[in-house]
Simulated scan of single mutants.
Amino acid sequence: MSVKPEPASALFAGPFALATLSAPDGPAFPALVTPDGRALDLRHAFGDERLTVVDLLERWETALPRLRTLAADTGLPRTAVAELRVHAPVAPRQVFQSGANYRQHVIDLHVAHRAPGDDRPEEARRAEAAKIMDRRAAEDLPYVFIGLPSAITGPYDDVVLPAWAGQPDWELELAVVIGRPAHRVRVEDALDHVAGYTIANDLTDRATVFRRDMPQIGTDWLRSKNAPGFTPLGPWIVPAESVANPDDLRVTLRLNGETMQDESTADMIFDVARMVSYASQTARLLPGDLVLTGSPAGNGMHWGRLLRDGDVMEGTVTGLGVQRTRCVAEGAA
């Protein structure tokens, strides 16, 4: 099941974007999508029936000029996106997730996750969290952990809420798509390794974030973030050359039409280049990999309203299109 995309969902910055699409009964294929909502099958354009978006990203330096030419050729046969199924735009080998990267969001979470016995007034706990954020920024220490590619789903697919998830929550994020291998790259060079950007909703079950049986071992990201479908992705990969400033984009999530998150990426403690550089200091980032950059204030814990059966989330990031997903309780899917 999926939520049918509206025609306006095709809108994005620049002359084209990448997608993974399929006909109702056909295999998925890489596509070039134009802002008028039409798609060109890139298997035929590149003469490779087994082509994937990762293949294009593996050869990004030579593929990008070819994609520009194809986008400008209005005589090529195209299909309306509305007639096709939209999948997650890329199947990454690795997913790097950023935690605690939006100042206001972290302060809100610090207040919401009050430790047992902490009876201080909210103002005191907010002040404490603000000092922690200031120290992290001064020490230049981002927080990155690993997600599972199997949690990724399409931008219009239903999201199944597992029966065990006591507090499922939303976290809309700007996602970076790697286009060149990156290992121990400098901040000044990091954006040279970015092919483009897309939208991710990094769902989290707040009830299982912390291991209550062994508090000393800390967070349990496997349990809380990696259920199948917990990372709706897309709809498009917009090339980096079409995004003027990734550190000044609006991240907006609406729940059943009501705005819950609405913040600029300018509120990030560590910008896109820093996040890519930091992740590359330990790991080797590969073409098609994702670096999720964190989520702004306004999640369900802040509002006291968690996800439930029938909810529809609509997420937008400036110039990257719209994703729209419906929540379905396990057993009702």
Rank of each mutant, 00 (worst) to 15 (best):
A8L: 15
A10I: 03
G14W: 02
A17Q: 00
L18Q: 07
L21T: 06
D25R: 14
V33A: 09
R38I: 01
L40D: 01
A45S: 10
E49Q: 15
R50S: 14
V54Q: 10
R59C: 13
E61F: 11
L64Q: 11
T79W: 06
L84E: 00
S98T: 15
S98Y: 02
Q104G: 08
R114E: 00
A115P: 14
E122D: 15
A137G: 02
E139Q: 15
D140P: 13
F145Q: 06
D158Q: 11
G166F: 00
W170E: 06
W170G: 03
V176S: 09
R180Y: 08
R184E: 04
V185N: 02
A190N: 02
A190E: 00
Y197E: 01
D205Q: 04
R206Y: 02
F210G: 10
R211M: 10
I217E: 03
W221A: 12
L222V: 14
V238Q: 08
S242W: 13
V251L: 14
L255V: 10
G257D: 05
T259L: 02
S264E: 05
I269S: 10
I269K: 14
T282V: 15
R284V: 08
L286F: 00
D289Y: 04
V291H: 12
E314I: 11
T316Y: 00
T318W: 00
V328S: 08
A329V: 04
